[in-house]
Measured scan of single mutants.
Amino acid sequence: TQTTHELTIPNNLIGCIIGRQGANINEIRQMSGAQIKIANPVEGSSGRQVTITGSAASISLAQYLINARLSSE
């Protein structure tokens, strides 16, 4: 079954999640098997909405990979 998880990434950290020309986010997508959508910046908001869709296992793996990127910054 597909589930969806949403999280907010601070604007100053979204770059390390996306990577150069989307390299990091594509790697996270491939490794986790989850669909990951990053919302466009919202004016006045300090973060970007990230939506992860997939199986429970792929979502938790995607979250783990995202958190690993954030903590390495």
Rank of each mutant, 00 (worst) to 15 (best):
Thr1Asn: 15
Thr1Phe: 10
Thr1Glu: 14
Gln2Leu: 08
Gln2His: 13
Gln2Glu: 10
Gln2Gly: 13
Gln2Ile: 15
Gln2Phe: 14
Thr3Leu: 14
Thr3Ser: 15
Thr3His: 15
Thr3Met: 15
Thr3Asp: 13
Thr3Pro: 07
Thr4Leu: 06
Thr4Gln: 09
Thr4Gly: 06
Thr4Ile: 05
Thr4Ser: 12
Thr4Glu: 09
His5Arg: 14
His5Val: 15
His5Gly: 09
His5Cys: 14
Glu6Ile: 14
Glu6Asp: 04
Glu6Asn: 15
Glu6Val: 15
Glu6Gln: 15
Glu6Ala: 12
Glu6Lys: 14
Leu7Gln: 04
Leu7Pro: 00
Leu7Phe: 10
Leu7Val: 11
Leu7Trp: 06
Leu7Gly: 03
Thr8His: 12
Thr8Met: 13
Thr8Ala: 08
Thr8Gln: 10
Thr8Asn: 14
Ile9Asp: 02
Pro10Ser: 06
Pro10Met: 01
Pro10Gly: 03
Pro10Ile: 02
Pro10Cys: 03
Pro10His: 04
Pro10Lys: 07
Asn11His: 11
Asn11Tyr: 03
Asn11Met: 06
Asn12Ile: 04
Asn12Trp: 05
Asn12Glu: 07
Asn12Asp: 06
Asn12Phe: 04
Asn12Tyr: 11
Asn12Ala: 08
Leu13Tyr: 10
Leu13Ile: 10
Leu13Ser: 11
Leu13Asp: 12
Leu13Ala: 10
Ile14Gly: 00
Ile14Asn: 01
Ile14Phe: 04
Ile14Leu: 08
Ile14Ala: 06
Gly15Ala: 09
Gly15Arg: 08
Gly15Cys: 05
Gly15Pro: 10
Cys16Ile: 15
Cys16His: 08
Cys16Tyr: 07
Cys16Glu: 11
Cys16Ser: 11
Ile17Gln: 01
Ile17Cys: 00
Ile17Glu: 01
Ile17His: 01
Ile17Trp: 02
Ile17Phe: 07
Ile17Asn: 00
Ile17Met: 03
Ile17Ser: 02
Ile18Ala: 05
Ile18Gln: 01
Ile18Leu: 05
Ile18Ser: 04
Gly19Ala: 03
Gly19Arg: 02
Gly19Trp: 01
Gly19Met: 01
Arg20Cys: 11
Arg20Ser: 09
Arg20Tyr: 13
Arg20Glu: 12
Arg20Asp: 13
Gln21Ile: 01
Gln21Cys: 05
Gln21Lys: 14
Gln21Asn: 13
Gly22Tyr: 04
Gly22Met: 07
Gly22Asp: 06
Ala23Met: 08
Ala23Val: 09
Ala23Ile: 08
Ala23Pro: 04
Ala23Trp: 04
Ala23Gln: 13
Ala23Asp: 10
Asn24Cys: 07
Asn24Ser: 11
Asn24His: 10
Asn24Trp: 07
Asn24Val: 10
Asn24Leu: 08
Asn24Ala: 12
Ile25Trp: 02
Ile25Ser: 02
Ile25Gln: 03
Asn26Pro: 02
Asn26Ser: 12
Asn26Met: 09
Asn26Ile: 08
Asn26Cys: 07
Glu27Thr: 09
Glu27Phe: 03
Glu27Pro: 02
Ile28Leu: 08
Ile28Glu: 00
Ile28Met: 05
Ile28Trp: 04
Arg29Trp: 00
Arg29Asp: 02
Arg29Cys: 07
Arg29Lys: 07
Arg29Pro: 01
Arg29Phe: 06
Arg29Glu: 13
Arg29Leu: 04
Arg29Gly: 08
Gln30Lys: 15
Gln30Gly: 07
Met31Val: 08
Met31Phe: 09
Met31His: 09
Met31Asn: 15
Ser32Trp: 00
Ser32Lys: 01
Ser32Ile: 00
Ser32Gln: 05
Gly33Val: 00
Gly33Leu: 02
Gly33Met: 02
Gly33Arg: 05
Ala34Leu: 00
Ala34Arg: 02
Gln35Pro: 02
Gln35His: 15
Gln35Asn: 14
Gln35Glu: 10
Gln35Trp: 06
Gln35Asp: 12
Gln35Ala: 09
Ile36Ala: 00
Ile36Met: 02
Ile36Leu: 04
Ile36Asp: 01
Ile36Asn: 02
Ile36Gln: 01
Ile36His: 13
Lys37Asn: 13
Lys37Pro: 02
Lys37Phe: 04
Lys37Leu: 08
Lys37Gln: 14
Lys37Arg: 10
Ile38Phe: 05
Ile38His: 00
Ala39Leu: 11
Ala39Gly: 13
Ala39Cys: 11
Ala39Ser: 13
Asn40Asp: 13
Asn40Ala: 11
Asn40Ser: 12
Asn40Lys: 13
Asn40Pro: 12
Pro41Met: 14
Pro41Trp: 09
Pro41Leu: 10
Pro41Cys: 09
Pro41Val: 06
Pro41Arg: 13
Pro41His: 14
Val42Asn: 06
Val42Cys: 09
Val42Gln: 08
Glu43Trp: 07
Glu43Gln: 06
Glu43Lys: 15
Gly44His: 05
Gly44Asn: 08
Gly44Trp: 04
Gly44Ala: 06
Ser45Phe: 12
Ser45Gly: 05
Ser45Asn: 11
Ser45His: 06
Ser46Gln: 10
Ser46Ile: 09
Ser46His: 07
Gly47Gln: 13
Arg48Pro: 02
Arg48Phe: 07
Arg48Ala: 09
Arg48Met: 06
Gln49Asn: 10
Gln49Tyr: 03
Gln49Phe: 03
Gln49Ser: 12
Gln49Gly: 09
Gln49Val: 13
Gln49Met: 09
Val50Ser: 00
Thr51Trp: 10
Thr51Pro: 02
Thr51Glu: 09
Thr51Gln: 09
Ile52Phe: 02
Ile52Thr: 02
Thr53Ser: 11
Thr53Gln: 10
Thr53Pro: 01
Thr53Ile: 08
Thr53Trp: 06
Thr53Phe: 05
Gly54Glu: 01
Gly54Phe: 03
Gly54Ser: 01
Gly54Leu: 01
Gly54Met: 00
Gly54Val: 01
Gly54Lys: 01
Ser55Gln: 05
Ser55His: 10
Ser55Lys: 06
Ala56Ser: 11
Ala56Trp: 06
Ala56Cys: 09
Ala56Thr: 13
Ala57Met: 07
Ala57Glu: 14
Ala57Tyr: 07
Ala57Asn: 13
Ala57Gln: 14
Ser58Glu: 13
Ser58Gln: 14
Ser58Val: 03
Ser58Leu: 01
Ser58Asn: 12
Ser58Ala: 13
Ser58Met: 05
Ile59Pro: 01
Ile59Thr: 12
Ile59Asn: 04
Ser60Phe: 09
Ser60Tyr: 05
Ser60Gln: 13
Ser60Gly: 10
Ser60Met: 09
Leu61Val: 10
Leu61Gln: 14
Leu61Tyr: 14
Leu61Cys: 13
Leu61Thr: 15
Leu61Glu: 14
Ala62Val: 04
Ala62Thr: 01
Ala62Glu: 00
Ala62Ile: 05
Ala62Met: 00
Ala62Lys: 00
Ala62Pro: 02
Gln63Ile: 14
Gln63Asp: 14
Gln63Trp: 05
Gln63Ser: 13
Gln63Arg: 13
Tyr64Trp: 07
Tyr64Glu: 15
Tyr64Thr: 15
Tyr64Arg: 15
Tyr64Ser: 15
Tyr64Met: 09
Leu65Gln: 04
Leu65Pro: 01
Leu65Thr: 04
Leu65Val: 01
Ile66Arg: 00
Ile66Leu: 10
Ile66Pro: 04
Ile66Ala: 04
Ile66Thr: 03
Ile66Val: 05
Asn67Phe: 13
Asn67Met: 08
Asn67Tyr: 12
Asn67Gly: 09
Ala68Thr: 03
Ala68Asp: 14
Ala68Met: 11
Ala68Asn: 15
Ala68Tyr: 03
Arg69Ala: 10
Leu70Lys: 04
Leu70Glu: 02
Ser71Phe: 07
Ser71Tyr: 06
Ser71Pro: 13
Ser71Trp: 07
Ser71Asp: 11
Ser71Met: 14
Ser71Thr: 09
Ser71His: 04
Ser72His: 10
Ser72Glu: 15
Ser72Pro: 03
Ser72Gln: 04
Ser72Asp: 09
Glu73Trp: 05
Glu73Asp: 15
Glu73Cys: 08
Glu73Gln: 11
